[in-house]
Amino acid sequence: MDFSFEDLPSASQSTPKKDRGDSQTATEDVDGDSSREKSSNMSMNESQELHNSSSIDDISRRVQELVENINRSRSRDQEEMDGFQEKLVEKVTEMCQQMKGHMYTVYEENSDEMQVKLQELSQVLDSCTKLNHELLEASRALACLREGLTVSEAPEQ
């Protein structure tokens, strides 16, 4: 991921000029030097182009590697998220099953308690019904007794 710009060519490179002290010699050598300079300039340009091209290729390769690394990282992230989602679904399902089990246990306990209370209520209602019948019998007996007392008091007059 580290980029190095030291390998890149400088845009301000120049070729050094040769210093000639003698103007006569300079004019004589101009024809020979100019052809040598052209060929050396051409080879320097070609060399610089090759260097530039290899630097561009190197940068392109590095960029491609970075893109591939990013894509691999994204794939790993997606796999992690998928795994997390699966585990989360499993845990939520497990918790729902536990809650259902607890809910059914509470239902059973409540049903058992209600059954006991309903049996007690039934027994109390049975007792009430018996007491009501006994009361009715006692009331009839008292009514008969009162009639008997009223009949027996009436002839004495």
Rank of each mutant, 00 (worst) to 15 (best):
E68I: 13
E113S: 12
L149Q: 04
E28R: 05
Q85S: 11
D82Y: 10
T129S: 12
D31I: 12
P9D: 01
R74E: 08
G148V: 04
L88N: 02
M42W: 09
S54Q: 04
C96F: 13
N110S: 10
Y107I: 11
S73I: 00
K130S: 04
R76D: 12
C128N: 07
E108C: 03
E6H: 10
Q13H: 03
D22N: 06
R36V: 09
E79R: 05
G83N: 02
S47P: 00
M81C: 04
E49K: 11
D2W: 06
Q115S: 04
V89I: 04
P16W: 01
A138K: 13
S152D: 12
D126W: 00
G32S: 15
E80T: 14
V92A: 01
E37G: 03
E90T: 02
D22V: 06
S23G: 14
G148E: 12
F84H: 10
E108T: 08
S53W: 05
V67Y: 05
C128F: 13
D58F: 12
V89C: 10
S73N: 00
E79D: 03
E94G: 00
M1F: 07
F3S: 13
E6K: 11
V151Y: 09
Q97N: 12
E6M: 06
M114Q: 08
E109N: 09
C128A: 14
Q24W: 03
K38M: 07
S111D: 11
R146L: 09
L145K: 14
